[in-house]
Computed example of a mutant assay.
Amino acid sequence: MKKLLILLSCIVATQVSGQRLTINQMKSKLEQAANPIAYVRDSLKKKYSLDTVVIRNANYFLGLADSLAYKGKPGKVYGPFEGKYLVQVMAKAPNEFYRISQVFLDTAVLAPRVADSLANSIIDRIRSGSATMADMAMTYSMGGEGKTKGDLGWMARGSIQPDIEKKILKCSKGEVFKTWSRTGLHIIQLTGMPKQDNGFALLMRVFL
């Protein structure tokens, strides 16, 4: 009986201790844990999920996951988000990134012959120095990159349209070329030589 009372006392103490953990204490313990997954499962007894995030652009993020995957520090716990969960950056891996700019001519609006002629004129002006890629993007681009003066940011290898990526791999900085897709004509300029950066991350989401 005495042993049973001691056991019950330990269980109650553990439950109370768990209930007393603040969010900051929970984050601190997670960051200090040798095995965060085991700590969440066995000590916190919380539900969790693991997600591998591919970072496609080092400048423009689609949401919380890829922003944390790129900017977050391994081991660090962030949140809570929406009052529902924490996110811990478990690990990171590198990828190769290229900075490119684009002028997009939509062939749903322009006839292909007109788009091709305009593209040749734009490329000639850029190569001669009479205009910049930014000038041409703001004037002619029919995509969202017109708002960023043509800049598409640092794009990850594997996330760029295959035909464009194939040509980029053979380019030198500043080189301009054109390529077709199902939606139109792309005028591309390589504005930054390849660099290694955060390309992949493993995130753990801990539900509160």
Score class of each variant (00 low, 15 high):
Ala134Asp: 06
Ala134Glu: 11
Thr14Gly: 07
Ala111Met: 12
Ile11Gln: 03
Ile126His: 05
Tyr48Gln: 07
Val89Asn: 01
Leu185Asn: 04
Lys3Cys: 00
Asn24Met: 10
Thr179Ile: 14
Ile126Ala: 04
Ala131His: 09
Ile6His: 12
Glu175Leu: 03
Gly75Val: 05
Tyr98Ile: 05
Val40Gly: 03
Ser117His: 12
Ser9Val: 12
Met138Arg: 15
Gly199Asp: 07
Gly146His: 11
Val89Tyr: 05
Ala69His: 06
Tyr78Phe: 08
Ala34Phe: 10
Gly174Tyr: 08
Ser181Val: 11
Arg125His: 11
Gly158Glu: 03
Ala58Phe: 06
Ser128Thr: 15
Val53Ile: 14
Ala108Gly: 14
Ile55Thr: 10
Ile23Trp: 12
Gln19Lys: 13
Leu202His: 02
Gln189Glu: 10
Asp163Ala: 15
Lys92Cys: 12
Ala119Phe: 04
Val54Leu: 08
Ser181Met: 05
Tyr140Val: 04
Ile187Gln: 02
Arg125Val: 06
Val103Arg: 02
Glu82Gly: 14
Asp106Arg: 11
Arg205Met: 15
Ile100Asn: 00
Met155Gln: 11
Lys27Met: 12
Tyr48Trp: 12
Leu118Arg: 06
Leu5Thr: 13
Asp116Met: 08
Ser181Thr: 15
Thr107Arg: 05
Gln32Gly: 00
Gln19Trp: 15
Val40Tyr: 05
Ser43Pro: 00
Ser49Glu: 14
Ser128Ile: 09
Asn24Cys: 06
Asn24Arg: 15
Thr22Glu: 07
Leu110Gly: 02
Thr52Pro: 05
Lys195Pro: 02
Lys149Gln: 12
Val54Arg: 08
Arg157Lys: 15
Met138Asp: 11
Pro194Phe: 09
Tyr48Leu: 11
Ala115His: 02
Asn120Lys: 14
Ser49Cys: 07
Ala33Thr: 13
His186Ala: 05
Ala69Leu: 05
Gly83Ile: 06
Asp42Arg: 08
Leu30Cys: 05
Cys171Trp: 12
Val89Phe: 04
Gln189Lys: 10
Gly150Cys: 08
Val114Pro: 02
Arg20Trp: 00
Ala65Arg: 09
Leu5Trp: 11
Ile126Gln: 04
Tyr70Gln: 03
Lys178Tyr: 10
Gly129Asn: 12
Gly72Tyr: 03
Gly192Phe: 08
